[in-house]
């Protein structure tokens, strides 16, 4: 079943710049997809439209059955609860501990305290940070902060995890550790869409790779097909 269906989508910003031209794509449940391409190719715009940070100018985007372009501003939270998002700069609340940052995503859903505790401790365990629950982000390393961000993104069991260059600020070793975490999450059934510049990681993981250029899909490599020299 297609979890994400993008039909003839075009995105032109108010400034007149067109970031995406007539794009069509489908992503199935449980897939792990890399989106690659040079800077300004439309990668960020594409994933921003998936979590409704931007609206398509024309065409249709269905995410888990929701028509993203038609979601009203005050209903956006309904989509966001189905999607986890991880960024290059972690986007953690600086004045909240690792535990509080993760718990926040469940508190907005109104879950009882003990249920929140169980779930938060479970994901902290999954990302290997059980002993750092009470640390503030400023006391954690980059890799640890990214793990907290990942834990927050998956704590309420979203169907989709969107990662916007999650390893962009990390050294190669830490990057691989983060990829291990993402792989483990994918194996539990979560669909992962990851934008990256890190060709080493893409080569290593041998997943589906979508190559963008100037707002268009240039090539869609099936699992294991992609090799860096094929750009």
């Amino acid at each position: 079943m297609d979890l994400i269906r993008i039909n003839n989508v075009k995105k032109t910003y108010k400034t007149g710049t067109t970031a995406i031209y007539d794009m069509s794509l489908t992503i199935k449940k449980g897939e792990f997809v890399f989106i690659i391409g040079s800077t300004g190719c439309g990668k960020s715009t594409l994933i921003k439209m998936l979590y409704r940070e931007e609206k398509p100018t024309s065409g249709k985007i269905l995410v888990g059955g929701l028509d993203v372009g038609k979601i009203k501003n005050r209903k956006v939270y309904k989509l966001r609860r189905k999607i986890g998002v991880v960024f290059q700069d972690y986007q953690l609340l600086p004045n909240s501990t690792a535990y509080e940052n993760i718990a926040f995503a469940l508190e907005v859903l109104g879950l009882p305290k003990d249920e929140i505790h169980t779930k938060v401790m479970k994901v902290l365990d999954l990302v290997g940070l059980k002993n750092k629950a009470k640390q503030y982000p400023s006391h954690l390393s980059g890799g640890e902060q990214q793990r907290v961000a990942i834990a927050r993104a998956i704590v309420n069991g979203p169907k989709i995890l969107i990662c916007d260059e999650p390893t962009g600020n990390l050294d190669p070793k830490t990057s691989l550790e983060i990829m291990d975490v993402l792989n483990a999450i994918n194996e539990l059934g979560t669909t992962i869409i990851m934008v990256t510049h890190d060709i080493d990681i893409v080569n290593k993981l041998k997943k589906r790779v979508i190559l963008l250029d100037s707002g268009r899909v240039v090539k869609d490599f099936k699992e294991g097909e992609y090799k860096s020299e094929s750009i």
Binding site: Y51, N73, R74, V76, Y77, K78, R80, R81, V85, Q91, L92, L93, F104, A105, V108, L109, R152, N156
Partner: peptide
């Protein structure tokens, strides 16, 4: 501003 965008990101409704 950042705090607010994070709140939105994790699925907090506007009123929340």
């Amino acid at each position: 501003k950042r705090e607010i965008s994070i709140m939105r990101l994790v699925g907090a409704s506007n009123i929340n």
